[in-house]
Design a protein around this nucleic acid. Sequence first.
DNA 1: TCATATAATCTTAGTACTAAGATGACAACG
DNA 2: CGTTGTCATCTTAGTACTAAGATTATATGA
Lengths: 171, 171
Amino acid sequence: MTSPSTPRRKAPDAATASALKLFVVLARAQRAIGERMEASLGAHGLTHTEFAILEALYHKGPLLLGEVQRKILVSSGGITFLVDKLADRGLVERRLCESDRRARYAVLTRKGEALMSDIFPAHAEAIREAMSGLSRAEQKQATTLLKQLGLAAATAATAAAADGSRRTAAG
Amino acid sequence: MTSPSTPRRKAPDAATASALKLFVVLARAQRAIGERMEASLGAHGLTHTEFAILEALYHKGPLLLGEVQRKILVSSGGITFLVDKLADRGLVERRLCESDRRARYAVLTRKGEALMSDIFPAHAEAIREAMSGLSRAEQKQATTLLKQLGLAAATAATAAAADGSRRTAAG
DNA sequence: TCATATAATCTTAGTACTAAGATGACAACG
DNA sequence: CGTTGTCATCTTAGTACTAAGATTATATGA
């Protein structure tokens, strides 16, 4: 029994085909790597976003909630939610800001510091392994190309979003 | 008023630094491109996953729900949910399978076909533009590198997930 | 033929985050 | 100084999907 009719579509031109192919391959690569990271972090009960917060605090020290938010690219509600969760686990705590009574610092607790000291090296190693399909030279090449691609794509997207971001700035 | 203490962390070795850099740049590029796609599809009230279903049906013709699911990499509950939504909008309908009473085909309706005829060219154009930060040769180069990277990353992830996928196969 | 294992889809409960909005605080300007 | 505009964080409702499980049907092997 064959499935119902199978349509034929016009083949794209070479430029579009090239772009579509890159799009698909890029998404797949990102997905494969992302899944490895999620598995690795999941073993510690962390989502990648939670980990990103811990990582930012670990490397940069205490940051205002808004600073963290802009660094890891989540919404304002999101940063509240995530810091709440990390605080509930005793990994992060909020501190007052002396110069602005609205603001709060997120600070790693001792427990949070210890966890990061423990898992960051393993995380870095997992990333190193995830990228090991490429040689160092290939990695650098890919980095250069993707940086160029990402900046160009983000520039146009930023222009389109410029009005939108004014409205969503309040989170 | 400076923020509280700012810690110093040991610098990673060159191999790890290279991998970490590629990881960040890849994620950013994917995010930038993804945001452009979401904006483009959102204008038609479609999530990228919904679009992926429509696209698969548009190019391949009717497919069993499980075939669609495996093609776009969503869970079994997810395909039910998404096809329900597309069916509610009259873009897709379910058809019986003569040879297997459990199975269902997802089929584009006339309305769904018309929508795809309308928006697929624009979508392809949007992808072409999103990738226009790279020349055709650069795109090919990036495709080659990322394919290699993605396959290597997915191979190891598949091995690790082999046990897990046995348990999640029921979706 | 029959029992067991596997498969296709649906159902249900849950999760990680977003968008929209609220509240209180600060900045800017006349 | 007072008013208005802007900002930092929190609250609330909502969304897109996942994981786990249920039900029915098919495949496999003795």
